[in-house]
Each structure stands twice: as C-alpha cells, then as structure tokens.
C-alpha cells in the first residue's frame, strides 16, 4: 500500500538539548494520514524524548511540530491531546482506581461542554451529554474487546487487558494520530501476535494514523509501512521494513561496527 503524501503530523528539524547532552539532533519526521509507521533504535537513541516533544511534554530546543495544520510546538500537552493526538505509555499509566469506563470518560473531558453549575443541577443537556459519552465509552471498550470489564477498576484488569484499555482510552480522545510507546513490552510472542492483529483492526476501522515505538522487531517489521531508525539522537535511516532490514548503518547501530581487517 502506498503511503499518503499528506502528513497528519510533521515534526521538522527537531533538536532537544538537556544541558550538554543533545538527545535529539535535527530530526524531521512525518506521519502520513492513516498509516502505521514505526520509530526504532537502540536504548538511549532518543525515541521517547522525541515522543515527548510531539505530545508537548518537552519543548524542543529548536524545530517545530505541526499537527493537522496547527503549530503545536508551544501548546501545553492537554491542548495537543484535545486536538486529537493520543498516546499510550511505555509503563502503563491508567487511572488505576477508576473503572475502565471512567478512564475513557476522563479522556473525553475536553469534548464535554457542561460547566460546574450544569453538573450540579443536572440539566437535561448535561444528562444527555453524560449518557452519550458513556455509550461511546462502552462502544470503544467493546471495540477493543474488554466491554465486559467496563465497571471494573482498571488496576484489576490483566496486563494484556490494561494495554487494551490504554489504547481504548487513547481512542476516546477521537484521535487522528495514535502514539503507542512500546505497546508489546512484557508480552510473550502469542500476546504480541494478538496485539499485532489488534493494531490492524484499529487502523482498519478507525480513521487513525499510528506511530509505534517498539523493540520487538517481529512486531515492527510485520505492521509498519515505514520504519524510521534513530541512533544517538539522529535519524540514520528511513524506509520500508525490507529496506531497513538490509541497511548497513542500522545493522551497525544495533550490533556494532565490524573492526576492520578480518
């Protein structure tokens, strides 16, 4: 499948400096509409830092982030999220003592219009809004396959279901871009395979582009339409999974350089 040339998200010439450390160096990265792209690289390559720049947690030292026609470089995270950029976390960060459906309702916060007084009084429009958002939350939970746990505290779900709930919560933001930070960390091969199918399903049924940060090469190579490789803060390669597999610099970054001679 050919990638769309329209980028829903474009990060241009991003650099991030922590004191003397250049964590990300002049990286340009676009996410085409409705695509699945991956960002890989050895530990400390700057993947998560780059992720945090896109989502507004860090401000880049230089460069701009443009999301769906809006310059989001200087926006606070909650505004970027409200625009429709949703993420999951490397180590699951659910609201553990809220139910699964409440987790989703929190993510709908920016879409709900009722004010304090309307909530206290319980105006008809507030009730309607609450009911609609609850229906939508249940629909999303059903979509990711954990509908039966809607009323359960998030922390009581199994690991795999918590991962699904994180994706569901992200989907509740109605995102155009879904950023998954190491979603299969801690999963065994079977679970990873289930997760791959799940990513396909999300992509097929929701109009959303997916950016994946992942260590599991099997997952990366099977779901990505494009793979970008970071090493020591720099983009060293970008291309289809097949191109990346045979790229000399990538192999060096992961396995080290062969010492000259033999």
């Amino acid at each position: 499948m050919a990638l769309s040339t329209n980028n829903v998200l474009l990060a241009s010439n991003i650099s991030v400096q922590f004191g003397g450390l250049l964590a990300v160096n002049d990286v340009t990265f676009g996410i085409p509409e409705k695509s699945v792209v991956s960002l890989i690289g050895p530990n400390g390559a700057g993947k998560t830092t780059f992720f945090n720049v896109i989502t507004g947690l860090y401000k880049p030292s230089s460069g701009t982030v443009n999301y769906d026609g809006t310059d989001t470089t200087d926006l606070p995270p909650h505004k970027i999220a409200a625009l429709g950029m949703a993420r999951t976390f490397q180590n699951i960060r659910l609201f553990g003592l809220m139910t699964a459906e409440e987790n989703l309702l929190v993510a709908m916060h920016s879409h709900l219009k009722s004010g304090i007084l309307a909530t206290i009084v319980g105006t008809p429009s507030q009730r309607k809004e609450e009911k609609e958002s609850l229906d939508r939350a249940r629909e999303i939970l059903d979509f990711v396959g954990i509908g039966k746990w809607a009323g359960e505290y998030a922390r009581n779900l199994s690991y795999g279901d918590q991962r699904r709930l994180e994706v569901a919560r992200a989907l509740a933001l109605n995102p155009k871009v879904l950023l998954l930070d190491e979603p299969t960390a801690g999963m065994n091969p079977q679970e990873s395979q289930v997760f791959i199918d799940f990513v396909y399903k999300v992509r097929a049924e929701r109009d959303v582009a997916i950016l994946l940060i992942e260590h599991d090469m099997k997952v990366v190579m099977s779901v990505s339409e494009r793979v970008t490789v970071l090493d020591q803060g720099e983009k060293i390669a970008e291309g289809t999974p097949d191109e990346i597999r045979s790229n000399q610099r990538v192999i060096e970054a992961y396995l080290g350089k062969a010492k000259g001679g033999k």
């Binding site: 989502t55 606070p76 999220a81 553990g96 409440e102 993510a107 909530t119 933001l173």
Partner: peptide, 21 residues
C-alpha cells in the same frame, strides 16, 4: 460528573491526566 472524574484522574496520575486532555 466531568469535573469529579478529572479531579480523581489528577489524584491518580497527573501526567496521564494532562496527556488525556
């Protein structure tokens, strides 16, 4: 309501709450 959920979300995980809008 909406506000109460947001309060609890902040109590649970401030960073995640802000990332959810």
């Amino acid at each position: 309501g909406k506000l109460g959920r947001a309060w609890l979300a902040i109590r649970e995980d401030e960073l995640a709450a802000s990332m959810m809008g």
